[in-house]
Design a protein around this nucleic acid. Structure first.
Lengths: 159, 159
DNA sequence: GGTGAAACTTCTAATAA
DNA sequence: TTATTAGAAGTTTCACC
């Protein structure tokens, strides 16, 4: 696949779609003074280039009763087990993302749970994985998210 | 706002929308053997309840040249500065999320950058914030994400 | 590349059950 | 609450720039 270059119009299309994927192409067209057909073709191209991988809902997990977030640093007995343990961790429910990292931890993951009791269950499941030496938990007391729109704004400026 | 309870139909609607927000309501209706009007009414209700906060594109940051991810643990001179420093960190470009945490760090954040040189710039900006004593960087060598669909599956089972 | 219009599909709100 | 319906709106293709 040839390297795909986004132009200013593409940036603006992404900018509109990124915080509302259901915004009509006709609205985008009107705002950017191009035709809806053009919007359609460009979005398709960006999708085909693999830059847009999909779309997803932003849900309020607090309202669903899952307001507990923690990061778990994992120490292993032996670094050679890293890949194996990462896979086991990733199979666990309520683990949202896991990383192999440099630094003090071998593996680092984020969990989302109902409350501390529920999180304890998840953490114990991690502790029980073969090869895990010990874990260290950091509970999030307050989360402050930067929306993708802002990140993309910086990325577009640098591209 | 009264407590909103999602039923099995709602779960399945969310399940379909969560990995493609643009799936036509008519398709959802066909699959669930209900009318498109019903899908429309239910989605609106879930939105009005605040459970669906919005929608967003899933982008391939690697393809955009931003493949570097790191977590930064921040130690402060004084815990009373936590809120202030969190706000400063959150204003920085390429910081995607920041948390106030229990455990060894006072603040913990995630950054996304082009490469190590670029990440260094971001980390130095954090180090320069008034009240930051020192930072500790964990570079992600491999990221393994669990999609929201799977998380929602577990949440629905427990609800 | 882009447009504009036609053909087709989907949305949405009102009404009815 | 859900279904039906019908007009409005959006999408997608294509002949032509």
């Amino acid at each position: 696949m040839a390297k795909f270059k986004l132009d200013e119009i593409d940036h603006q299309i992404l900018d509109m779609l990124i915080d509302n994927t259901r915004v009509p192409f006709t609205d985008i067209a009107k705002k950017l003074l191009i035709s809806a057909g053009t919007v359609h073709v460009r979005v398709k191209k960006i999708e085909d280039a693999g830059i847009i991988k999909g779309s997803s809902l932003t849900l309020d997990y607090k309202k669903l009763g899952y307001s507990f977030i923690a990061y778990i640093g994992v120490y292993l007995n032996n670094t050679s087990q890293t890949k194996f343990v990462l896979e086991r961790i990733n199979e666990l429910p309520f683990v949202t993302v896991a990383h192999i990292t440099t630094g003090k931890f071998n593996i680092f993951c984020k969990i989302r749970a109902r409350n501390t009791a529920h999180a304890k269950d998840v953490i114990f499941m991690i502790d029980d994985i073969e090869g895990v030496y010990r874990t260290e938990t950091m509970i999030s007391l307050e989360e402050s998210i930067n929306d993708k729109k802002r990140l993309m704004h910086y990325i577009f400026k640098e591209l």
